[in-house]
Amino acid sequence: MVSSIVTPLDRPNVDTDQIVPKQFLKLVQRTGFGKFLFHDWRFDQNNTPKKEFVLNDSKYTGSHILVSGDNFGCGSSREHAAWAIKDYGFDVVIAPSFADIFYNNCFKNGILPISLPKEIVNDLMKTDSVVHVDLASQTIQYNSKSIHFDIDGSRKKTLLEGLDDIAITLQHENKITSFEKNHVL
């Protein structure tokens, strides 16, 4: 269960180049990317926070839920985008739709991406109330509203139980080995 106010980022097509600009992709570890999140929107040329950008509004400090427009996370496959979102403190991203690679990267990093109809997303962007997101029951609650969201059962399990995907696949190693024996390429 995640409970916090939401951070509204009302733009469609937020691409991974904006989530983490390329000048920060040179690190060889997975941690410490939160400070680069939305860097070029968040800071000016002198690295001073831009007042008008939503992440710099103290009202949203401590928010764990990011709400944005259509096709969130499009562009580059860089998982650094998911690492930055998680490291900054967001555990849930809500949008009308997500780009495929980013959507997949979220689950690998303990982020829950939720797609909901545009009207609901727009309503969520406007609320100042605390929003409760419960993965187990697949519901979002705020302002005495209760909204159901869909999620693939196996991905839900992975997030809830924090499973190691590679270990799960390796349980099927016999199948992989026998597949390889008959495979031509």
């Binding site: 997975r30 496959s77 860089r78 998982e79 998911a82 690679i101 997949n104 990267n105 690998k108 990093n109 995907d165 590679i166 799960i168 696949t169 390796l170 099927h172 190693e173 992989i176 390889e180």
Partner: peptide, 17 residues
């Protein structure tokens, strides 16, 4: 195209889910 966690998954298993 895949993310880094899937790169690791393919390196270890030669498969993707």
């Amino acid at each position: 195209g895949i993310g880094t966690s899937d790169v690791e998954h393919v390196l270890a298993t030669q498969c993707l889910v």
